[in-house]
Structure formats: structure tokens, C-alpha cells
């Protein structure tokens, strides 16, 4: 029986992912296949190559090509106070709980260029909780982390961020937290005092701290079911008893192994609380 063109491409795709893992240590083998295939076929078209097999040769031997390719695979789209309703719900339903803690530790996984991290820091500051909070913000994309550390963003986006901030229940003005210079804004160093930005790969690295709160929004959607479960296990192991897990608004525990391991704090905003018996 002859194989369909797309089935041959699937074989090539699997071989390519294996090759990348062996050469570079980045493990994309359990990312969403449909998503990977789209990105890879796009790059194929752009670079005038005929088959994924030809591309594999370039990826193994031409590091510059690999760098471009890696960019294709990482989606860093993010914004400040993305899904403002989520932050409003967080303020209302999670903050009261956090207030009772002597010390708060947060793991912000897949933080991309950091806009979300500064959003959380601002929210915590307004609730007078920032001083007693330690935030670990991680991503496996070093370029994104570099931007996150700087805390400098384009002024073009700031109107949207300002709207989001207000909609999220912001208490002052977003401009209280940054200084503008030329076309950029620089977020206040007092916000990042307790933030550590670090390189961490959710697929291949393990638990590195025990935390009260895990923020991992819009990252799991790029993974297949198996990998989602693996990463959710990592979060469960990192969370303290009754720790809180925040996912993206279109992500959920519903079709995973962890559905019955958490109670729901806000079903629409995907805020969960680890059940005491969950390890």
C-alpha cells in the first residue's frame, strides 16, 4: 500500500524532532503535532525546500538555520493583563487566601517576555503583598527571558495594556509603574526586586522550588495530552498543600489526569486549588 504524502511527512516530522532532540537537547516530540507541522511546512515553503528531510540536513549542519527554525517553533505572543477578567477574578478569589500567608512563593512558568510577570507584580503591590512575595519567572527561550529581565516594552502597546489594567481592576494608573523614554517604557525596578528570571525547560527540567502559586498560561496548549499530563505532574509536585494553579482561559484540567486532583476556584478563568490529598 502506498502512503499518502502527508503520512510520509509525518514520518519525516518525527525523525526531525528526534534529530533535534539528539543534537540540541530540545525536546519537541510531544508538542501538538498539528501545530508543529503547520510551523514546519511554513518554514519549508519560505526557504524553498522540497521536503522535511532536506530541512533536517540544514537543521543538523547549519546552526544559523536552526536558530531561525527555533524561533518559528516558539510562540511568544503575550501582553500585560492579558484576559483582564482573569486578573479581576484572581484579585477577588485568590488574594484573600494569599493574605493569610507569611511568605508567598510564585512560579511563573512560560513567562515569555515578562509582561505577565510585571502585571502580577503590580497587582500584588496594590494589594500590599509584593514585599513578602518571591516570584520565579521561567521560560526556555533565552531571548524572551532577556527582554523580560530588562522590563522595557514598546510604547505602541501601552494603550492596550492601560485598558487591560483598568478592566482588571487596577487601582491607580498604569503609568505610575513605568517611565517613558523615546518610544519605550521601562518598568519600575521596585517591581522586579523580588523576581528571579531563569532558564527552565518544562519538558526536560524538574522541580526547583516549592511554591504556593503556579502561573502557567497559554503554554500547555502547545503540548499534546501526554506532555500536558507530565507538566501538570511537575506543577502538582511543586505546589504546596492547597496551592493554587492558574492556567490560560482556554486551557483546562478537564481532559487531563488531574481533573479530580484540584478543586475549582473559578471555572471560566481556570483557577484551581490543589486538593490536600493530592501529592
Amino acid at each position: 500500500m502506498s502512503l499518502h504524502k502527508t503520512e510520509i511527512q509525518d514520518i519525516e516530522l518525527n525523525l526531525l524532532l528526534q534529530a533535534i532532540y539528539m543534537k540540541y537537547g530540545y525536546d519537541f516530540r510531544n508538542y501538538s503535532k498539528a501545530h508543529l507541522k503547520r510551523r514546519i511546512l511554513q518554514r519549508l515553503k519560505l526557504s524553498g525546500l522540497k521536503t522535511i528531510t532536506e530541512m533536517q540536513k540544514l537543521i543538523l549542519w547549519d546552526t544559523d538555520f536552526y536558530k531561525i527554525f527555533l524561533k518559528d517553533l516558539s510562540i511568544n505572543v503575550t501582553e500585560m493583563f492579558r484576559d483582564p477578567d482573569f486578573y479581576a477574578a484572581f484579585r477577588e478569589k485568590v488574594i484573600p487566601d494569599l493574605r493569610t500567608y507569611a511568605h508567598i512563593k510564585v512560579w511563573h512558568a512560560g513567562c515569555s517576555t515578562g509582561e505577565e510577570v510585571y502585571s502580577l507584580a503590580i497587582l500584588l503591590k496594590e494589594e500590599n503583598l509584593l514585599e513578602k512575595t518571591q516570584i520565579y519567572a521561567t521560560d526556555f527561550n533565552k531571548n524572551a527571558l532577556e527582554v523580560a529581565k530588562q522590563g522595557i516594552y514598546s510604547k505602541k502597546e501601552i494603550d492596550l495594556y492601560d485598558q487591560n489594567y483598568k478592566h482588571a481592576g487596577g487601582k491607580h494608573k498604569l503609568s505610575n509603574y513605568y517611565t517613558s523614554k523615546y518610544g519605550s517604557v521601562l518598568f519600575d525596578k521596585s517591581l522586579s526586586k523580588n523576581i528571579v528570571f531563569a532558564d527552565h525547560n518544562l519538558v526536560t527540567d524538574g522541580v526547583f522550588a516549592e511554591v504556593n502559586l503556579v502561573f502557567c498560561r497559554n503554554v500547555l496548549i502547545y503540548f499534546d495530552k501526554k506532555l500536558q499530563n507530565k507538566v501538570l505532574r511537575l506543577f502538582s509536585e511543586s505546589l504546596t498543600k492547597r496551592g493554587v494553579l492558574c492556567l490560560g482561559t482556554k486551557e483546562s484540567l478537564r481532559f487531563t489526569d488531574f481533573d479530580n486532583k484540584y478543586s475549582v476556584i473559578d471555572s471560566k478563568m481556570k483557577i484551581y486549588k490543589k486538593l490536600p490529598e493530592t501529592k
Binding site: K33, I75, I221
Partner: peptide
């Protein structure tokens, strides 16, 4: 499809969402 998300269909007949450009 939910507003603002792409919908993709996987080989195992499940749905993936994405916020790609």
C-alpha cells in the same frame, strides 16, 4: 472556534487551540 484562538485538528481526532499569529 473560540474568538481569538485558532482551532487545529490532531491525528487522534482531538482539538488543539493556538494563539499563533
Amino acid at each position: 472556534a473560540p474568538p481569538n484562538y485558532h482551532v487545529l485538528i490532531e491525528d487522534n481526532f482531538t482539538i488543539s487551540l493556538s494563539t499563533d499569529e
